[in-house]
Design a protein around this nucleic acid. Sequence first.
DNA 1: CGGCCCCGCGTTTTT
DNA 2: CGCGGGGCCG
Length: 785
Amino acid sequence: MIWYNLMGWIPLWTNVNERNVSKEFLEGLSEVQLQAVVNYNGPTLVIAGAGSGKTRVLTYRIANMLADGVNPHSVLSLTFTNKAAAEMKERIKTVVGEKAKYLWMGTFHSIFARILRAEADKLGYPSTFTIYDTADSRSVLKSIIKEMNLDEQVYKVNEVHSRISLAKNNLVTPAVYANTSSLVTIDAANRRPRIADIYKKYMQKCYLSGAMDFDDLLLNTNVLFRDHPDVLNKYQNIFKYILVDEYQDTNMAQYLIVKKLSEQHGNLCVVGDDAQSIYSFRGAKIENILNFRNDYPNYQLFKLEQNYRSTQTIVNAANSIIAKNSKQIKKKSFSAKDPGERIKVLKAYTDQEEGFLVAGSISDIIYREHREYLDFAILYRTNAQSRIFEDALRKKNIPYKIYGGLSFYQRKEIKDMVAYLRLIINHNDDEAFKRIVNYPARGIGDTTLTHLEQAAVANATNLWTITTQAPLDKVGLKGGAIKKMGEFAQLIQSFQSAIYTESAYDFALMVATQAGIIKDLKEDKTNEGVSRFENLEQLFNGIKEFEENAKESGEPLPITIDRFLENVALLTDADSEKPEDKNKVSLMTVHSAKGLEFKHIFLVGLEENLFPGQMSSQSQDDLEEERRLFYVAVTRAEITATISYAQSRYKWGNITSCVPSRFIKEIDSSYIDWNEDSMFGGSSSSASSGGNSYSTQHFKPKANTISAQRTVAPTPQHHPVSAITEPADMSELEVGMEVEHERFGFGKIEALEGSAPEIKATVAFTVAGTKTLLLKFAKLRIVKR
DNA sequence: CGGCCCCGCGTTTTT
DNA sequence: CGCGGGGCCG
């Protein structure tokens, strides 16, 4: 290992390549950041703790190279999201100017899709191959499982897909799969011995459709480099410098691509944080970063340990969490900021109250600290949790936005339109074919399609070839169906001559019009239909925008539709944030929060079987990943982090009781503030650490949130703790009894259901309204039998 | 062939 | 509880 040269002083003007280039941008970097920026030759590992200025180092490292005269065409920079790539490129541009646009900068998938298109003939693919998204892949698998007459309950599409994806990410071919005992054993144990066969058929079907799925983009790049040394050599020579962001999230296929490409020049720089590896469920190998030292023994190591984002308390608390993990690279993350506030823990009685507390807490901080909505994020483990917080925020008139959920490109109307374009560019694309053959409705039904599919399988070809080349009467179609299929094929073919002569926008508009898509959407006057039409308009705006961007970079005209289509499957709508969404509270999963930061973080649903998730408490490795996820969540916070949990919540329509997450106890208690009920005025001094007394003061009903339509509200009952009658024996309770709840006040039991210990009581409270309570928590005092 | 209803299922997901 | 897919019926 090479120790970097501690010059202590770096001239701001250097004479590399006899060019005087301003390097003022290097000012303001810390010593270790600076060293990681200027030493850009040789294998380099940058361990970048949360908030340590990782992106800054990466962008300045590249900017510095370019300032030294390195050709941008020879720099390959790989990220995991389009957004990260675009942002980085933009930042480099502000430092070194226009030449930044010649950098090879993008996601693994988009960069290698580009290379695969250029080299497609060597793998027997058309350069216009379709990229199948997850939905396409699943649809193909579904038809294969049906075709093989396998039990769809046993061969669940999702699970089969993830097995195949796992195999591809590890470069395991169908033949190898069948001979790999570790894989076969697991499948046998799950009574799914035929996954290897499905896998094989799946690959064939994709190939016959001229399609690659997401995993194929990486797998086939490996195949290309393995089987065509000349091609590998070509790209090895092109890429003199290779940089990889979020290296801890690379899988085997990505790891090997990077390793091979960097063999020639050896200038590989990987940046990452093993503590933030949270995608192993998608095949990411934390070992890639842990073992970098073994792959490149003469590597330089830079550890960015200072956290510039968060308070000391947050950083120290996060460290105390991650210390429980065994697999990690040693580093000590620290903050030089103020100690800051301790991490608050909010204990809620129900999931609804959790939402209520968090929303209340947000408006409280906004008022007290003069913050804006955009300073807040609510982070949860699963998307299903978002609803509660949406409701609570809406009631308080707090604007919010939700990340995740259905992406723009996954909407039906968008997929339909894109499928037309796909089929026109690549006739063999069976998934596109099936999607639109009867959209808009033209009387082609299941029967017809089944005949065609059977013929396609029997002849080892695709639907288009059968439709246009087979005698359709021999395939089993009747006169009417034959005619309709002929018309459909002709429609698709009629666009052929215009593909490369029309601009993308004009072409797409022509297709949408002539195929009857516009008419179909316009006829639907329902709100839903109108919104679908607007979405289609938005797609067209996107196409126009794409065209304008390409024009601006001086590409030859016309900018055609195939160019737009190339990457459409790789797009997510994460990059297109609407301006009106700027100042809003952000709601998202912890996974999607990675890389982001907020002044105030609310980390919710900290309960066993939710966070950590129930599937994760099985194995040590899974638990460690959940812990890293928790670490990622806490380190998003700049100023305060608040944790919340509920003692009962609705799961799939049923109330279930919840146990606080083990992760709360794992935080060093000196960084925790258990005084969970101080926020609405904070007169209370109760609730000692870990105690199970319920907080009451913060639940003062507000006129606009609780419908207090009854008569005079009784003054809230503040019993001294000792005066509370022992919780009534559940068996004593009966419908009609009047009871008192320490928080909700007086009420009458309207119904009892369920069996011990999960008995639920529906109680009509005088003030708080009707609530369904789990008796084991409710501590009801009987007032009148 | 298309629409409607009912049943089953329901971590995380940058690509 | 809320959605999506499959199956059945018109």
